[in-house]
């Protein structure tokens, strides 16, 4: 009986490294496959995030001034047009120029991402 026990022990210690080796390799391969898949899926998102951050910083820097100027121009132009049509020369121009000024500030606030009111513009990521 003692002889048999010794033989069993010998078999187990001989076999264990052989079993543990492949198991570890399988989980390693699984991890690598998962990593590759994650990489393949996040590739687009990664570029997208960089795109959006680039757009936010540089884009808004270039937008701020022209957004304001454009709104004032449109306000003044509309006011002048209304005055020309109705013959109320200074009033329409003054009122709409002020409204254009307000719209310009609103535009700038939106371009800076402070007022996300009309629509969800560019605020998909908090």
């Amino acid at each position: 009986m003692a002889d048999k026990g010794k033989q069993d022990n010998g078999e187990k210690t001989g076999a264990e490294p052989g079993i543990a080796g492949p198991d570890k390799r399988f989980s390693e391969i699984s991890a690598r496959i998962a990593a590759e898949r994650r990489q393949a899926e996040t590739f687009q998102g990664e570029t997208g995030r960089r795109t959006s951050s680039l757009g936010k910083t540089w884009g808004s820097a270039f937008r701020l001034g022209s957004e304001f100027v454009a709104a004032v121009l449109v306000g003044g132009g509309l006011g002048y047009l209304i005055d020309r049509l109705l013959g109320t020369l200074p009033f329409g121009l003054i009122i709409l120029l002020l409204a254009g000024f307000a719209a310009g500030i609103l535009n700038m606030a939106r371009a800076a991402g402070r007022v996300p009111k009309a629509g969800d513009r560019m605020n998909d990521e908090p």
Binding site: P22, D23, F26, S30, I33, E36, R37, A40
Partner: peptide
């Protein structure tokens, strides 16, 4: 390819 690799890995396991 990833699905196949996973399949093969599973099979091997």
């Amino acid at each position: 390819d990833l699905a196949q690799a996973e399949q093969l890995n599973d099979d091997a396991r």
